[in-house]
Write a protein that binds this DNA or RNA. Structure first.
Lengths: 116, 116
DNA sequence: CGTGAATGATACGGTAGCGAAACGATTCCA
DNA sequence: TGGAATCGTTTCGCTACCGTATCATTCACG
């Protein structure tokens, strides 16, 4: 089954959710960073820089920089792939999981108050 | 009635929608800019710099800069309030309406493919 | 009038993002 | 074993964003 959203509902959901996200004291990530973060936590591992860059349609430095930023926020963690030491495996953290849990709560909360 | 989203659905919806948004050739706005744009188009006018800043919980220069950026993209338009010439009224444009229509389409499209 | 409040824009110094190109480390393979 | 390919990072020059503070314009009100 699908989540049935009408056009006005879809935009209102994003409106209220982004509004709440901006108003919150959560570190404000760029859309690209948020997309990377969601991908890491919602798609089965392993995740590499090259893989993420390809998936998002961006260059590798974009992913490296996003990992730098989010890494210093504790949202993700890097580790070398010991099988092929050229690769970097991006891993999840407790902090990152909590961040996304909070994001999920915001979306759901705003979804409940959508006009029909 | 409300839009019933379960936690995993909420995050998956945002995951696929942000992914599609990043991959698209649409100008990539910051989260704050997107929030401002949605607010202008979904909440009844008039919209002023001060009002938007207060609503979003950000400073006025943030709104001014966002309007500069989105203005040069043609997404919004500024005009003086002739009743009180201190105010600037932010107005919608055809380009902005099309941008949000496209965003709505992306969200709906991704919502249809959500796992139950 | 004219003084103070209110509004939006601007200046400033600093930080972080961008794409393109080059770089070191590692692996592949001939 | 040695050259090419792959992977992630770094560098470069540039643009855009941030918060704080300040500015010009306009209005309200004594």
């Amino acid at each position: 089954m699908s989540v049935l959203l009408r056009p006005s509902q879809a935009l209102h959901l994003w409106h209220s959710a982004t509004l709440e996200l901006v108003r919150s004291d959560a570190p404000d990530l760029t859309l690209r960073q948020l997309s990377i973060l969601l991908h890491i936590y919602l798609v089965p591992p392993p995740h590499t820089v090259r893989g993420l860059a390809s998936t998002l349609g961006v260059t590798k430095p974009v992913v490296t920089r996003a990992l730098d930023s989010m890494g210093s926020l504790g949202l993700v963690r890097r580790s070398r792939d010991e099988q092929d030491r050229r690769n970097v495996i991006i891993q999840r953290t407790v902090t990152g999981a909590l961040y996304l849990e909070k994001l999920g709560d915001i979306i759901i909360e705003q979804g409940k108050e959508l006009p029909l």
